[in-house]
Each structure stands twice: as C-alpha cells, then as structure tokens.
Nucleic acid binder design. Structure first.
Lengths: 214, 214
DNA sequence: GTCAAACTCACTGAAATCAGTGAGTAACAG
DNA sequence: CTGTTACTCACTGATTTCAGTGAGTTTGAC
C-alpha cells in the first residue's frame, strides 16, 4: 500500500484527487494540506511514501518546499504537479530533488502509473520527455538531470551497511559497528551488489555517491 | 569512539555543538576551551583525536594555534571552523596543517561526516569545493592548491591502474587491459594504497574521485 | 655513465570479498 | 490468520585483495 500525501491549494481538485486515489487498490491518501508551510509542518510527522506537490502554491512555492522536505527526509518521493508544462520549471523541480512530474492537463490515468513508478524508486516524466527531446533538437542543451534515476529501493539496514562500506570498513568492523554478525553484513553486501547490478564494493561506493549517502 | 575537542569562543554555538556531537554514537566531546592559549595548555594533556577549531578566535588566532598544536603533536587532526568562507584564510589553514574545513553556515549534518573523514586520515573540504569551482569559472585563478599538497604524486601507470580499479575491474582484468602481469598491477595497487594512506580499494576510489580521475 | 625513478615481475601467506543456498524470526498489512 | 518484507545468521567454496619482500629492466636527467 502506497501512502500518498497531497499538497495543493485548489481544494476542489484536491478532493477529486483524493477520491480518485481512493479508487486505486494499492494506494491511499494519508493526508492533505493546502500550503507549503503546512506541508513542512505535517509531512515530517506523517508516514508517507509519495508526496504529490502542486508547484504553483501561494506563499512558499512548491520547489522550495520540495527542497526543504527532502532535507528533512531524503527518502521521500515527490511528484510535482502543475497546470502548464514549462521545461525550465521542471528542471528546477528535479534539481530540487523531485523524481516525477505530472501535468494537470494530463489524463488522470497517468497519475497512478506515475505514483507506482516513483514509489519503486524510478522516475516519471510523462509528456516532458517529448518536450525535452524537442528542446535538445533545438540545441538548447536543456536535458533534465534526474536524481536517482535507476536506483533501486534500499532498506534501512542496507543503507547503513552501504554507508559503512563506503568508509573503508571491513565486513567484520561493520558487524561490530551495527551489533550484528559479519555473516549478516555479508548478506546485506551481497544484496546490495545484486540490487545495483555492480560487480564489487567499488561499484557500491560509486552508487553510494549517486545516492548521496556519503 | 572518536574523541573530539572543541576550541570556540562562541559559547552558545559551542554548547550546541557539544549536544549535537553527543547525539552521534561514534564520537564524544572530551573537552572544550574558549581561546587559543587555553587550547595550547589543555589539549597536549588530553587524549584527543580530532580538534574542532574556530579560526576567528580572539587573541591568538586559530591558524597560529593550529600550527603550534601540530608542532607538539603531529598526529592531531584539526578541522577549521569559520563563519565566512574566505579562500585565502582556508589556504593558510591548510598550510598550517589542518586537514579539514567546515563553514559554520554549512548544514550541521556535514560536521560528523567531516569528523569521521578527518579521523580516518582523509581531508574534508565541504563547500570549498564548490567555491573553488566557482572561482575557476570566474577565471580568478585563485584556486586552492590543497590537492597537490595533500594528495601524493602518482606516476602515469598508477593513475591508469587507479582509474581502472574505479571502474570495478579486477586486478586480472586490469593486467589484460594494460598488457602487464597481474602481479604488476598488484604492486601498483599496493603502492597506491600506501601512498594515499587508505585501507583498501574503496578508499582508492574515493581518492580517485578527489583527483577527478573518474 | 651514473643515478634515481618508474616499471616490471614473482612468491608467500593471511585476510577479505564474492557467490550460492537455506532458513528462522519479527513486524506489518490485508 | 496469512502472506510479505526486512532482518538475521550460517556454511561452503572460489576468487580477490592485502601485505611484505626482493629483484631485474627501462628511461631520462645530470
């Protein structure tokens, strides 16, 4: 069950989204606020997987809010919503750490697809891909650099182990640090290597850097 | 457990740092003084791993203090703290023998990261990297020459091997790539580990990143 | 030509990693 | 209650890395 949180000042649309999400079997709306400041207050206290964030919020804008939220909890997945498609804004959005974007003009069916993809740690771009592609053709060089593009989900323990590996610690030392058997650390290491599709600890470190764990 | 010693005249900030460090499992604050002269008196008598040193101290400034401390005990690791980022000061700081720098404006989360890195004999620059980068862009030529100073010189072959290690290749594969025996690659790897003072290939990769070899 | 540095290679032995498999427990949602 | 996910642990065996030592060759500078 994916826990979705909504940040949108258009209360009517917001209500519609809640209803719509309620119709999806594998997700539910666990909360809603109507401004960025409220979001910063409520979301950190709530168990949330994915945040749907209107970019065109009054007061604090969605992008700043996005940054602030990720500073508090970098595990949060954020999808930006906006009325119109503007590549410059979307670029800023991704730079702020969001991993998905859906236009309000898009078909409502897109939304659950996007939410599921983001929740799996992937990204969702929707129409932007095409737009971006066109920009590239026109020589603008405005490719969107998406954070955590193909990086799989890691568990809490895996992240801890990964962080310690990246600090040049041996399996034995990590075990002592985390108060678990070195065998267990081995397992986590193996799973990490497998999840990332890398060949050894060196590859893991490079991934840790991508994930900004170190 | 990393033993941290604090030298800072801003008592409020100092107290905040103590509290914060107390929250870290692998480090503790073993002492604090509010001036350079006190530092020179107390630190040599105390078992300390890392010193957090405010550069803008009244009386004896942090940089002189840094030099003096290292003269007494060259095993000491020192991180400079300052309110504002001035490349000239940071340059002097590193010249005095400090191995890390953290801006007070930086996120508090940076600090434990810096402390751990320094404690492991590595260096920490934090925001300076970016600042340095910006300087480069503006063509000022005021780049900080930390790298050459604290990263040993590598031979052509060593750099090649390092680069390939950072691409997840095994010793055997590297040998094939460079048309040399794996034994030779072993030797290069060993020399690299020794030159950098790191513990394993993971450390090498981190150094390779510092050197911007990858 | 001499000297130093870099590059090359080999051997040993210990330590760590990598790969595969199996399996028990705890927490949690449906 | 049941199924899933995360976490835990163990055992085996192969491969790789790490550490120390020694030594021959090439290259380039003085």
């Amino acid at each position: 069950m994916i826990r979705v949180f909504l940040v949108d000042d258009h209360k009517i649309l917001a209500q519609a989204l809640i209803d719509f999400l309620g119709g999806q079997e594998d997700m539910k709306c666990v909360g809603i606020v109507h401004s960025g400041t409220e979001a910063l207050e409520v979301i950190p206290k709530t168990a949330v997987d994915v945040v749907l964030m209107d970019i065109g919020l009054p007061g604090m804008d969605g992008i700043s809010c996005c940054e602030a939220l990720l500073k508090i909890n970098d595990q949060l997945k954020i999808i930006g919503l906006s009325t119109h498609l503007e590549t410059s804004i979307v670029k800023r959005l991704f730079k702020a750490g969001a991993t998905g974007y859906v236009s309000k003009a898009a078909d409502l069916k897109e939304l659950p697809v996007a939410i599921r993809k983001i929740h799996e740690g992937r990204t969702y771009l929707g129409e932007i891909v095409r737009q971006n592609y066109l920009d590239d053709l026109s020589g603008q060089g405005s490719t969107i650099k998406v954070r955590q593009q193909y990086l799989p989900k890691l568990t809490r323990r895996e992240k801890e182990v990964l962080g310690l590996i990246a600090r040049e610690m041996t399996t034995e030392e990590i075990g002592q640090e985390l108060f678990i058997s070195s065998n267990t650390v081995q397992t986590h290491r193996k799973n990490l290597i497998s999840k990332f599709g890398v060949r050894n600890s060196v590859g893991l470190v490079l991934k840790a850097l991508e994930l900004q764990l170190i």
